[in-house]
């Protein structure tokens, strides 16, 4: 089962942008057994007009390994037919894409849960860090981790 789950996982860490519609089409092409596809896209906010960009630093190698491990667990736990995660790095302007998750399953609840589970674990376990670049040219701060993200992850263990 772990091997089979791994085959349903596609993880990409890249600087360039992604096309959500094209990725959904690729994941479902030629498949008549998929009944539900849930996508999540995370975008860069301008934080009330303050930000010129977010710069995402990552730990190459571990970033892909960590997301792949979470995605493989999501496939096994929710019996997903496929899951895709794309996480960008580098400088991203407000309005730009940061992360994409696409989860496919026979029925909607597994697809919703699979996408949410992957995002909740990714936020706290995938080695990425965001630095703010300010519109006024000032040196930005590193974004702090949020307790709410730890709480979001914890709900998947307390629910069992």
């Amino acid at each position: 089962m772990p091997d089979e789950a791994a085959h349903r996982v596609d993880v990409r860490i890249q600087a360039h942008d992604f096309d959500s519609a094209a990725e959904i089409a690729a994941l479902t092409a030629g498949r008549a057994d998929i009944g539900a596809v849930v996508t999540f896209t995370g975008l860069c906010r301008d934080e009330g007009g303050r930000l010129a960009a977010l710069e995402l630093e990552h730990y190459p190698g571990m970033a892909e390994r960590a997301i792949r491990a979470i995605a493989t667990e999501a496939v096994a736990r929710f019996s997903l037919q496929g899951i895709l995660a794309i996480h960008r790095h580098g400088k991203i302007a407000p309005g730009g894409n940061i992360v994409l998750v696409v989860a496919a399953a026979p029925h909607r609840q597994a697809a919703f849960d699979g996408a949410a589970f992957l995002m909740d674990y990714l936020k706290t376990d995938a080695p990425f860090w965001k630095k703010e670049h300010l519109k006024d040219g000032g040196t930005g701060e590193w974004v702090s981790a949020k307790d709410a993200d730890d709480a979001a992850k914890a709900r998947w263990t307390s629910a069992q």
């Binding site: 995370g42 995402l56 990552h58 730990y59 190698g61 571990m62 970033a63 390994r65 960590a66 996480h87 940061i98 992360v99 995002m119 990714l122 936020k123 706290t124 376990d125 995938a126 080695p127 990425f128 860090w129 965001k130 590193w142 974004v143 702090s144 981790a145």
Partner: peptide
């Protein structure tokens, strides 16, 4: 911390790890 690209608690033995990473709490996604 991470030992050879795997998350590690502070009480974890370093053992034969070749690469040890230290970083702040992660803020991806």
């Amino acid at each position: 911390a991470a030992l050879d690209e795997e998350h590690a608690d502070h009480d974890e033995p370093i053992g034969g790890a070749r690469e040890i990473a230290l970083f702040p709490p992660m803020t991806g996604g």
